[in-house]
Computed example of a mutant assay.
Amino acid sequence: MDNKETNDLKDKRISALRASITNLEAKRSELEAELASITTKLKDDPNATVERHIRLLHDYNEIKDVGQGLMGLIADSKGVRQVDVEKEFGVGDQD
């Protein structure tokens, strides 16, 4: 292969890469616009929503721990297993 053919190949590759870059930049712009549009439709700030869910999960876990502790006390006072007390109160495995 001579220099002209090598240069032609390089020019074709460069042109293809430039076209690819242009297409990717256009796609990025489209995605950024879509993201901005979706973000404006959100009721609350996403970070605030995540923080709220974390706080609510923490509250839920504390309440669940208290409930399990109470059922443990009831089980001890009755002399039965805690699982039996949970069944008595309708608490399932998914609760």
Rank of each mutant, 00 (worst) to 15 (best):
H53V: 13
E32M: 11
V80W: 10
S20F: 13
V83P: 08
N47P: 04
A75W: 01
K43L: 14
M71V: 00
Q94T: 04
K4H: 11
E25H: 08
S77F: 10
D11I: 05
A48V: 03
G69W: 00
H53Y: 14
I74K: 02
A75F: 03
D76K: 03
A36C: 00
A26C: 09
A48G: 06
E86C: 07
G79M: 01
A16D: 12
A48Q: 08
K27M: 05
L9M: 02
D76S: 02
L17C: 08
L70E: 08
M71T: 00
H53E: 14
L31A: 05
S77E: 10
L42W: 06
E30T: 06
D44G: 06
K78H: 08
L35S: 10
I21P: 08
T40W: 13
G90M: 04
V80A: 04
G67K: 10
D2R: 01
K27C: 04
G69K: 00
Q82K: 15
I21W: 14
T39F: 15
L70R: 05
A26H: 08
F89A: 06
A33E: 11
P46I: 03
K4N: 13
E30F: 11
E25K: 11
K4A: 14
L42K: 04
N47M: 15
L73R: 04
G90P: 01
S29N: 14
D44A: 14
K78P: 02
D8Y: 02
K87G: 06
A19R: 10
K12I: 01
K12W: 01
T22R: 13
L9C: 03
A19D: 10
I74H: 03
N3V: 08
V50N: 06
H58G: 14
V91Y: 10
A48Y: 06
V80E: 09
K78L: 14
D8P: 00
V83A: 15
V80G: 02
K41P: 05
E30G: 14
L57E: 13
D93A: 15
S15G: 09
D59Q: 10
L24R: 09
M1E: 13
L24Q: 09
G90F: 00
L35T: 00
K10P: 01
I54P: 05
H53P: 04
R81Y: 12
I74E: 03
I14V: 10
D84T: 03
R81W: 07
V50E: 02
R81E: 13
K87E: 15
I14L: 11
Y60I: 02
A48K: 07
A16V: 00
R18M: 12
G67L: 15
S15T: 01
K64A: 15
A75M: 00
N61Y: 11
M1K: 05
S15Y: 06
S37Y: 09
E32N: 11
L31N: 04
L9W: 02
G79T: 01
A33L: 07
A75T: 00
P46W: 06
L57Y: 12
A48E: 11
E32F: 07
D76M: 07
K27T: 03
K27R: 05
A33N: 09
E25R: 10
G92L: 07
P46R: 04
K10W: 07
E51C: 11
E34C: 03
N3F: 14
H58E: 15
S37T: 06
